[in-house]
Design a binder for these strands. Structure first.
Length: 466
DNA sequence: TGGGGTTAT
DNA sequence: ATAACCC
């Protein structure tokens, strides 16, 4: 069987540089024009169906056949398909939702603990298929399947190859060409996608959608084509159809609220508008980085790699409210947020080296803007982190209140609508590679913390006098 | 618009 | 520290 190879195989991280060694030297065909999607990667995007609602239905199976909404404050942040049939949508006001659907059952979803735990179980399950898994929020994951597809292909006999079929939908019902190596790869990808969804359902009881394509953008877009609990593969020839199906540039992942507004001001509304707009002018308006990236997106091109997420970079807890206008009130809320965070971070095992306080001030109608202050966590506090302790609360609350007073003039009236505490700059405790001095170094001093100008001698003294 | 997350500047 | 993006 003849296979027409469209692109360079091997690199699963896409974007082979132009100077990368290619075919036989001196060949006339060396001048490969690296046009769109010369990538031969196979990427899957996995998107759980109404994730929070699913978790709630697993917790309480009596909810399964009822219209269910998950509530945070006065919003229905997500709902199951029973509720959607009756007109409830995501981020709908609770009053509107109840009006549309009086039988709607609401559960409070402000505590994300169970959602977060289930979310990581999904990511871990996917990591068993391939370690290259990137999380996007709690309910979406990208996996780079390139390598495992290639492995499977090598095991296939030629008679099995000719009997290869797709699992799930093919976007646009495009005919499959088994002589096209990229079609073959994507079909194998679709079968792995089905295996992943089966495993999610059998092991975790979760349903979701999957999209298989040659890059993250396209995989994400195509995963949503057939919606609850189905999967779709995009063959390269239908790429343009898929991106033209977006009716506005704001629908393009990577083009957010701000950029969409600026594009609209330039008269750019559709994907085609963006494709044909002058690159030079776009670069002047948005900066070269954003301009080049989003214009590529408009052609369905996306060479960004699937970056393994690994453990979280930060832990945060926030609470929003109608009004907080006194320091004591703020302190009580901050204490609650911090207590929960300390529990989470001690279960993680790593130690945060930075703490941040975030506020949102009341403003009549301006776009909600947040302000933050952060500072290093003193090393003696870091050390005490881990075991269930109260003696770490006091110094950390003191720090947070200093950050608070740095942002908010407490002698003047104020009106806050959100408080958030974030622990970040997480470091593993014992990354020390045994040098002569390391014996004296504690976990909180390891690696990068010693690199600064502040000599390790003074820091060392703090620890050796224990 | 909640209660989270990430990266770039 | 903020601003943009994602869910």
């Amino acid at each position: 069987m003849e296979l027409a190879d469209a692109g360079a195989a091997g690199s699963s991280q896409g974007a082979p540089g132009p100077e990368q060694p290619g075919g036989p030297a001196g060949s006339v065909h060396d001048q490969v024009v690296p046009t769109q999607n010369s990538s031969s990667r196979v990427i899957i995007h996995v998107d759980l169906d109404c994730f929070y609602a699913q978790v709630e239905m697993i917790s309480n199976p009596e909810l399964k056949d009822k219209p269910l909404g998950v509530q945070q404050k006065y919003l229905v942040v997500t709902c199951n398909y029973e509720a959607r049939k009756l007109g409830v949508t995501k981020l709908m006001n609770v009053r509107d939702a109840k009006e549309k659907c009086p039988q709607l059952v609401l559960v409070n979803g402000e505590d994300l603990t169970r959602y977060r735990e289930m979310s990581y179980k999904v990511t871990e399950l996917l990591e068993e298929f391939s370690p290259v898994v990137e999380r996007l929020g709690f309910d979406e994951n990208f996996v780079d399947l390139t390598e495992i597809v290639e492995k499977k292909l090598q095991q296939l006999q030629s008679d099995e190859l000719s009997a290869l079929t797709v699992s799930g939908h093919v976007y646009n019902n495009q005919p499959i060409n088994l002589h096209d190596i990229m079609h073959i790869r994507l079909l194998v990808g679709s079968q792995i996608a089905a295996e992943m969804r089966e495993a999610m359902y059998n092991q975790l009881g979760l349903t979701g959608c999957a999209g298989v394509a040659c890059n993250k953008l396209l995989a994400k877009l195509v995963s949503g084509v057939f919606k609850p609990n189905q999967q779709t593969v995009l063959l390269p020839e239908s790429c343009q159809d898929l991106i033209y199906s977006l009716n506005h540039i704001k629908k393009m992942p990577g083009i957010g609220y701000k950029t969409a507004k600026r594009l609209e001001a330039l008269g750019i509304n559709s994907v085609q508008d963006l494709q044909t707009f002058s690159s030079k002018i776009l670069e002047k308006e948005l900066g070269i980085s954003v301009a080049q990236r989003i214009q590529k997106l408009s052609f369905g091109e996306d060479n960004s790699p699937v970056t393994p997420s690994g453990p979280p970079q930060s832990f945060s807890e926030e609470d929003s409210f109608k009004k907080c206008s006194s320091e004591v009130e703020a302190k009580i809320k901050i204490e609650e947020l911090l207590a929960n965070l300390l529990n989470r971070v001690s279960r993680d095992g790593r130690k945060p080296h930075t703490i941040r306080l975030v506020i949102r001030r009341y403003s009549s109608e301006k776009y909600c803007c947040r302000e933050s202050r952060q500072c290093p966590i003193p090393s003696h506090v870091i050390q005490k982190l881990g075991a269930g302790n109260y003696d770490v609360m006091t110094p950390m609350v003191d720090i947070l209140m200093k950050l608070f007073r740095n942002m908010v003039n407490v002698k003047m009236p104020f009106h806050l609508t959100l408080l958030s505490v974030c622990l970040c700059n997480l470091k593993a405790l014992n990354t020390t590679k045994k040098g002569p001095m390391d014996y004296y170094l504690t976990s909180s001093m390891s690696t990068t913390s010693c690199s600064g100008k502040r000599s390790s001698v003074s820091t060392l003294l703090q620890y050796t006098k224990i």
